[in-house]
Structures are given as C-alpha cells and as structure tokens.
Amino acid sequence: MVSHGIWVVGPERVLFACHECDWLHRMPPLPEGAVARCRRCGAVLASSRPDHLVRTLTLTFATLVLFTIVNAFPLLELKLGGRETSVTLLSGAVELGHHGMWDVVILVLLTSLLFPILHCVALLYVLMPMVMGYKPPGAVWMFRVAHSISPWGMIGVYMLGVLVAFVKLSDMATVVPGVAVYALAALLFCSTAAGNALDCCDIWRRIGEVDDGHP
C-alpha cells in the first residue's frame, strides 16, 4: 500500500533498502537517538534525531554567518624584512589566475567557497519555512541540490591546508594567524554538527507528504 508517497509494509513499517548492498528491511519507527544498521553489511541506514529541524537550522545559519567573517578577514599574515602580506579565502583562490592556471582557480573556488555556501543557502531555504510550518516552493529541487553538492565542499581539507602552510612558513618568516582562522575552525565545528543533526529521511518524508498528488 502506498501512503504519503512512501511504500508502507504493514502497520507503521516503511520499506527500506541499504544504499551499499541493496538489502531490504522493514523499518519500524525509530526511538529517539536510535541508529538503524543494515542486517547484511552493517551500513547506517537511518537514525532518529530529536529536534533535528531546529538544530540543523540554527547550526546552518551559524555556519553562514561564520562564512562572512572568514571572507572578511585574512587567514594568515606573513612578515619578512619589513614587508607584510596576507591571504584570504578569496584572494588565495584567485592568485593562481595571475599565473594562468584558471582550471585550478575554478576548482579551489568551487570546493572552498561556492559549494559550501550554496549548500548552506539551499538548506536554509528548505529548513526555515519548514520550522515555521509550511513548505517553500521548489523545496524538492533545492534539497536535491544540497544533496548533490555536499560531497564537494572541502572546508575541512582547506583548514588542514592552512595549518600546514602556517607551520611550513614559520620556518622562514613570522606568520600570524588571522581572525579568519579562528572563524574557520568554528565554522568547521558548526557545519560538521549541522551535518550530524540533519535527518534527511524525515525531511524527504515531510516534503513527500505535501507532494502527495503523486501516485
């Protein structure tokens, strides 16, 4: 029987297939904080997260605010022989363009700036109205966008790059970590926590419920 666009087997049980091995499960409603694992391969199928909408919304909003701070201040400053230079998220990405390496510029811009910001914006677009009790137009499309770009955001890797650059350069000059480094660390914490709080299954269920005109 089909109810709310979800294939339901028996009372209160939803048919679920493992994303890694395709094994079928009949999923009962999960108690709060519970994690469901695949019986065959052990992959995490779903988890129930209390208050996930408000938590994810708050953390995603914090991530976006921190992004503006990261962009407004230098990550690292270098002092050598009376000269000073600094690097920001944007100036670092664009620098290789002066050497004609636009392919690398695009790669760095997308993975360290555009995809992470777009991911936040798409999540906010879906979550904010949902917390207030209605579904925004194009929610399905926006949530699909968020899903497909999330593996391409590489803020964590970027942070490691900043740390390596810091240690490497402190050998030859005075390096001062800028405000943006601390903001970037906080951003990393918030975006990871937001990712952990997000319950995609529940959001799809809500979007699906409203889209019940489908067969």
Binding site: V87, A93, L96, V104, S112, V157, K168
Partner: peptide
Amino acid sequence: FLVTLLTT
C-alpha cells in the same frame, strides 16, 4: 590548497 595559500 597549500600551493594557493603559499603562492599568495
């Protein structure tokens, strides 16, 4: 990322 930071 390291190369972009160092060159800048």
